[in-house]
Design a protein around this nucleic acid. Sequence first.
DNA 1: TTGAAAGCGTTACCAA
DNA 2: TTGGTAACGCTTTCAA
Lengths: 335, 335
Amino acid sequence: MPRPRTTTILDVARDAGVSRQTVTRALNDMPGIAPATRDRVVAAARALGYRPNRAAQSLVKGSGTTVGLLVESLRNPYFSELASELGRAAAARGWGLILCDVGYGSERDALLAPLLRRVDALVGDLPAGAAVEVDVPFVTIDNAEETVGDATVGIDHEVGVRAALSHLVATGHRDIAMIDSGTEPSPRCLVYRSFLAEAGLAWSEQLEVRVEESHDGGVAAAATLLDRGIALDAVLAFNDVLAIGAMKGLARAGRRIPDDVAVIGMDGLDVGALVTPELTTVATDRGDVAEAALELVDTLLSDRSGDGHPQATGSAPAHRPRRTVTPRLLVRASG
Amino acid sequence: MPRPRTTTILDVARDAGVSRQTVTRALNDMPGIAPATRDRVVAAARALGYRPNRAAQSLVKGSGTTVGLLVESLRNPYFSELASELGRAAAARGWGLILCDVGYGSERDALLAPLLRRVDALVGDLPAGAAVEVDVPFVTIDNAEETVGDATVGIDHEVGVRAALSHLVATGHRDIAMIDSGTEPSPRCLVYRSFLAEAGLAWSEQLEVRVEESHDGGVAAAATLLDRGIALDAVLAFNDVLAIGAMKGLARAGRRIPDDVAVIGMDGLDVGALVTPELTTVATDRGDVAEAALELVDTLLSDRSGDGHPQATGSAPAHRPRRTVTPRLLVRASG
DNA sequence: TTGAAAGCGTTACCAA
DNA sequence: TTGGTAACGCTTTCAA
């Protein structure tokens, strides 16, 4: 299927009665061209609706780096804040950031594949169950499994969870539940258990609830906890989205926050400041995360030697570059 | 400055002892190659850390379309929802979506310029005061001034504002203020005035407050309205972000929502469902907006004839393609 | 099954 | 001030 012929620099050159290099000079504001000639070329270009072929430009100039951002959904505020920071960090390096956010639809893999062909590297996380082949450097972020990707930005949740729980204890709470994400106890949840044990606080399985990582999941989790009829004066949530869902669930049940039940989240999302009362949280600096991710991309990209993709070879994972970001407690004064 | 020599297909060919076309065949899973040869080529490519040059690929295959999304900040949930929908719509067409979100910093123009070179078209809005030249098709969204761009997606706020106000009146409200955005009465505000007049409701300048379009702006606006000591039982906000800010401002002043003062927003953002009580709003389908925007881009892109950029020529604006999306009232039951 | 040659549209370098 | 020639790295005919 022969591509429809587009107007090229040669068409402009012909119409303007000059050579193509002269067209280049005229259109790129380069020195060494007579104003009259330039005007003539510009006019011809405009008349023809000429637009330079970016691929050809990139080829000859050295194509700039393009990073793909792989996220489940930009409607999740965590990812949109991350995208915002990555966009800035990428722009600062002269890199482009392409959105690879095609959600969990059935056509996901089909939509994803072409996008992956456009990027020099990938940042984010492959949706669970995606059957696409990644053959570019891949930096994961806060990836618990660490079975995929060539490098990772870790977040020190050990510190984060302890900061959150210390805050709850310091403010007089004793019966602290945890709303966890997924089907198995997450690493954060294990830290939670350790902390309770070390602090001499009561723990039971009834204090934990595991739900889908969404607002509605948080709402449901709160209801579940209340239904259990256990003593409960505080809730630690796996992240802010769940925490805000929990706040809604508690409010619906008539519980006052934080007087009856305190809620603490993790992430430090902007949206935590919009709800009432404002959400106390363990904030991770997503600017730092973005910067660390792009540094890792840079490293992988310049590392042209040997096997850039250990995980693809089936051999034992080689050194996996890693940067770690440490969250800090963010207490938001409500009203 | 000679670019550092990267490993090309020829290096692989040399190492594998084949010609470069054979390398292409091996690496692109094309038929007509002996398995043994393929393995040898693949091994050589991996050993060299070979990665195909995308620009060269694009050049020869016909580069796919890349659209730039120009937004003030992805941290504004309106834009992140828009970005999400545009990303999907673009992926469905096999297009890429590049983020051009560099905010309002002082280096903005410097960061923006390189990004604009990578796109075939632009969707969104140029930040006020940006001094960059756009020389690709540009589709604006809900742009009041309509002085920039080659095509636009309009939103019928006339319908939206009337729907919102009708709802307030139907639910028994009479003293309806408006939190407007900007420094001059917006088009939405003019509809508000008309509606009040037609409905025989009292209007005064005291009922209007104009603030910066942000959450804090909304908080401040609520405080301002309350300070005026006017009768007030409902507030119409220019958009959801302002509305949610207003909710917080009202809550801080001890007003109950919606019993003391009802609040209604416009946009239908997801975040409206997270706050308590949930925000009633006039929702615009951002999937439709995104689809309309890309259709317009498609139109502009295929319109290779004549002057594709009327606004740049200084001549009278020619036909400006336009699609309009109509919002609908979204009443969210508050749990 | 493999290889040689011909572009793809642009910019860079050097000579006129 | 201009134009010719040579890359840029890849894919796609067409022959061998």
